[in-house]
Design a binder for these strands. Structure first.
Lengths: 203, 203
DNA sequence: GGCATAATAGAAACACGTTACAGTTACGAA
DNA sequence: TTCGTAACTGTAACGTGTTTCTATTATGCC
């Protein structure tokens, strides 16, 4: 290799490096899914991914980077599934609520993983801004697409208002998620709160 | 003393114990104000408060409890000051934006302290639900009062819709604050985002 | 193939939250 | 006052995120 490689993004590095990165993220997801944030221990990740601790830190400069990158990959993997089909529902509210209910249920189905990823997301500082921005864009895309429904056209920029609405919904969703993963709200309360907010913003 | 004492709440314990608790919280605020979350190190707090490390843990079972308790005391101290005067502004949006701008500016005036307290708040789990609920109620009261403006009547319950709106605004505010303390957004972006959200929700 | 350089392994060490514990002090009860 | 118990001190130790360092291995270039 002729240039120093940050290894931070998907498509860089040799095949062996891409495979190491994949193994590391696999191990991260597996450990998070089994025991949550605390179970994602750097030594354990390194061992399970079959890389040295120093190598792990070469790929991901902190536990937070690691978890947020894992979150981004999860979004990539499942976002593609959600992406194609039209969102059911006759109004923006119905469509957004449908999508969020699906997403929330998915996350609640793996509480430990959600706890790990959410905590990392909330603790991330400026050095993780790039990864966070990726997740934010994915969320915004998902929501603006749901708002437009059939009127959505591939590649078209969403309106400023739709983006603003999406950001508000994202904020509410994130707050609700934090309440839930920290045990301060039940799944039902989260669902109810989100639906109230969506109908409020999209009336 | 005849009974074991949790020391978790303000009015328990001897004078010497109340004084220790005060010194601990003073040291916490001072360290947080100087260097943020990372600077609030338990050994440093203990030393500055002139108590042993074990004693610090006897009073506050974790760093998070310590910081959230410090936040609660800050709210107690400053909350009374804000409470009485009517909120200026002719529309709900104007009043809410005024109040939030004031509060945000206050927090941004002590960035390190805000960072420390916000991080603790986001990391708090169910064991601090009581203190967190208190803060949430104070926020809701502040916002519903701002929405109603002159129409506000002491002791009257706010409408369900006003409460829902307040919760959405709280969520947006908290998310914005997290973005700011983690260095992912500037103060201007925070102000702009909040105002966009408020006008959206209160149209 | 042989060399220069980057990447990796492996292990030790450090930082800070947290726990454990032995000795000492404060304080109410008898 | 003396005693018994709980609180406090001081310190060591542990767990986990992070850093550092040396030896080894892989990789691109001639």
């Amino acid at each position: 290799m002729t240039t120093t490689n940050s290894l931070t993004y998907d498509d860089l590095g040799s095949a062996a490096q891409r495979d190491r990165r994949r193994r590391i993220l696999d191990a991260t997801i597996a450990l998070a899914s089994k025991g949550g944030f605390d179970a994602v221990q750097m030594r354990a990740v390194a061992e399970q991914a079959d890389v040295a601790l120093g190598t792990l830190y070469r790929y991901f400069p902190s536990k937070i980077h690691l978890l947020v990158s894992a979150l981004a990959r999860q979004f990539d993997d499942t976002g593609a599934v959600v992406g194609r089909r039209p969102v059911p529902g006759d109004t923006p509210s119905e469509r957004v609520i449908y999508v969020l209910r699906r997403a929330t249920r998915g996350m609640q189905g793996d509480a430990n993983l959600t706890e790990a990823l959410t905590r990392a997301f909330m603790f991330a500082d400026a050095s993780v801004a790039t990864e966070i921005h990726v997740v934010g864009m994915q969320l915004t895309t998902m929501l603006t697409r749901s708002i437009k429904g059939d009127a959505y056209v591939e590649g078209e920029q969403p309106s400023d208002e739709d983006v603003a609405i999406s950001r508000v919904i994202s904020d509410v969703w994130l707050s609700a998620l934090v309440s839930w993963v920290t045990g301060r709200a039940t799944a039902e309360e989260v669902a109810e709160h989100i639906e109230t907010a969506v109908t409020l913003v999209l009336r």
